[in-house]
Design a protein around this nucleic acid. Structure first.
Length: 583
RNA sequence: CGGGACGUGGCGCAGCCUGGUAGCGCACCUGCUUUGGGAGCAGGGGGUCCCCGGUUCGAAUCCGGGCGUCCCGACCA
């Protein structure tokens, strides 16, 4: 075989491709095990291939999209003065021991040849702080913002939805180091602005929402969420977006049911065979919001009775904030503590060993609760009078409930988390000894923030938000190419030569152009694959084009076709693309 | 970690219930025709039927164990 047979055609244009000879494995049918749209289309459009659960190879075509996302991220991170660096994926375990994060269930652990325990990085707070502790000594060294785009490894219990939830992925993670809380606010705000520009430029519909600080710890956090039916998280927001929060901490104004006349004391009544709230609603004819739901949990400290109104659910995360790690109680345990089975449980007359946590909504009104006697309930039960309980927000938000800021009813939206920002404070700088000397020579702790974006999730979210029956519809900002030139005919033909010249001219005008010059393919196949790939503008060059034109140009998003004269065609296409990019 | 489904040429699937020559479509190779929306005809190559064990004269098929992948839940910076 001669060299020429396997060499790629020479291209003077780094960003533009001639397709002939390239590795671009498209697929006609949806992969059998794919559920999410982005999973199906990313495989079909030849962007990724799966190696194992949660492990994906990105193809040359897919890598173009990822790299465009990364390019936007780099520009915007650099714009706010963040500096790119690169830290190792493999870390000595002892650094993670210092912060108490060694041994987390998602952590990949291994040993080096000397038997030293090592971990693969799930994130880099420990490592970056370790460096900061050694290098940043004076207030004159602050503030700093460092970032990297690098591999993270997490042994996810359940990888899913293609590239949306994987065990190995690249993340842009940045870390800010400030002298004080004001400095952190500035770094946080700078990242917030950079993130807004990044996600706008990536062409996503996105929300910035309040989030739980979770295992990262710290004093405040926001998540960036792209709405999508394939999303794993849920955001509670109002139509205007003036209120938006992860449901894990969202609050709302619960409805105000008619409680009716209060009772002087709880009254027991028979409820034979009644267990669930639905049954109790039907039996009593009362609104579920006037019934109290009792859930028994077991925390480290012992049994916990969590109470919410009938229309609500106890939210796992919210109750966990109060009682810590916990599990559901076994039926035998419930029998022992309450003397009744689930379905007839309530807070009245419960032994002191049971901690009672009631949702704040219970502070108003009187309720029907279980009587802790099988087949009986109490009506007229009042919190504070008939039983004592801690109160807190432990319930889920319901769609349709009013927002606390008065901006209207709450809607619940499934979303993909594409980024997050955390105010870490001293959570990492303290255990790792990251301190500096202030103007007075006093040792102070460095105040940190951490900020993440998943470029592949950005790409997948774009697919989720932009597709039709024929394939992907990329936003102009992150499409693999700006213009897709479909050559119909032989590369050596007159139209082949014209297509090559147009390709070069468009590239000279600053566009990244894909020229489908693959020989032997039928026109239909090229069109179908062009639709699948979804570049914003498609130009067709065929027999009809020469010698007098016109060129057929199609906008992928609208399907709108137009004809362009050969004279000045490249400039006209560039102008068309500029119009799409602008709006 | 609980529940469920699936595992058969590269991809998508049938066959399994009722054991007896491994099949279909697409893709791939060769030839001819075709060439503006996934072509037609003819010929051809390619499979440890996920793995291990058991039952049987004989196992893709029945039984047991394991592994893998996906979905639901739990979990999740």
């Amino acid at each position: 075989m001669s060299d020429a047979a396997w060499r790629m055609p020479a291209s003077p244009y780094r960003g533009s491709w001639r397709l002939a000879g390239r590795f671009w494995p498209t697929v006609r049918e949806d992969p059998a095990d794919a559920e999410a749209i982005s999973h199906k289309l990313s495989v079909r459009a030849g962007l990724v291939r799966q190696l194992a659960a949660g492990l994906y190879t990105v193809t040359p075509m897919g890598l173009r999209v990822i790299q465009r996302v990364e390019a936007i991220i780099r520009e915007e991170m650099n714009r706010i003065g963040a500096q790119e660096l690169l830290m190792p994926v493999m870390h000595p375990a002892e650094i993670w021991e210092a912060t108490g994060r060694y041994g987390l269930s998602e952590q990949f652990r291994l040993e080096d040849r000397g038997g030293r325990p090592m971990v693969l990085g799930m994130t880099h707070e420990e490592i970056v702080t370790w460096h900061a502790a050694r290098e940043l000594r004076s207030y004159r060294d602050l503030p700093q913002s460092w970032y990297q785009i690098q591999t993270k490894l997490r042994d996810e219990p359940r990888p899913k939805s293609g590239m949306l939830r994987v065990r190995e992925f690249t993340m842009k993670d940045s870390y800010s180091f400030d002298a004080d809380a004001d400095g952190l606010e500035k770094s946080y705000a700078a990242h917030s602005e950079a993130y807004a520009r990044i996600f706008d430029r990536a062409g996503l519909l996105w929300y910035r929402v309040e989030s739980d600080v979770g295992m990262m710890g710290g004093s405040g956090a926001h998540e960036y969420m792209a709405p999508s039916p394939s999303g794993e998280d849920v955001v509670a927001r109002t139509a205007s977006g003036s209120y938006a929060a992860n449901v894990e901490l969202a609050t709302s104004v619960a409805c105000e049911p008619a409680f009716g006349e209060p009772f002087g004391a709880p009254e027991e009544f028979a409820t034979p065979g009644i267990g669930t709230i639905e049954e109790l609603t039907a039996f009593t004819g009362q609104h579920p919001a006037t019934l109290a739901k009792s859930v028994v949990l077991v925390a480290d400290s012992g049994p916990v009775l969590a109470i919410v109104r009938g229309e609500h659910q106890v939210h796992e995360k919210k109750i966990a904030h109060i009682i810590g790690e916990h599990r559901a109680a076994h039926p035998e345990e419930i029998r022992e503590w309450f003397g009744a089975d689930p379905g007839s449980l309530g807070p009245v007359g419960v032994s002191a060993e049971v901690r009672i946590v009631a949702d704040s909504t219970l502070e108003q009104g009187h309720y029907v609760t279980g009587a802790n006697r099988d087949g009986f309930h109490l009506r007229g039960v009042v919190l504070g009078r008939d039983f004592a309980a801690e109160t807190a927000d432990i319930r889920t938000v319901l769609e349709g409930e009013e927002s606390r800021d008065g901006s209207g009813p709450i809607e619940l939206v499934p979303v993909i988390e594409i980024g997050n920002i955390f105010k870490l404070g001293t959570k990492y700088s303290e255990p790792l000894g990251a301190t500096y000397l202030d103007e007075n020579g006093q040792e102070q702790q460095i105040i940190m923030g951490s900020y993440g974006i998943g470029p592949a999730r950005v790409a997948m979210a774009a697919i989720e938000q932009g597709h039709d029956d024929n394939g992907i519809i990329w936003p102009t900002g992150i499409a693999p190419f700006d213009v897709h030139v479909v050559l119909i005919g032989d590369p050596d033909s007159a139209q082949g030569e014209y297509a090559g010249a147009l390709w070069a001219e468009l590239s000279d005008l600053g566009l990244e152009v894909l020229l489908d010059d693959r020989p032997g393919l039928r026109p239909g196949e090229k069109f179908v694959e062009a639709d699948l790939l979804g570049c914003p503008v498609r130009v067709t060059v065929g027999k009809r084009t020469l010698p007098d034109g016109p060129l057929e140009v199609m906008v992928r998003r609208t399907g709108e076709k137009s004809e362009i004269a050969l004279e000045g065609a490249a400039h006209a296409i560039r102008a068309l693309w500029d119009g799409l990019a602008a709006g």
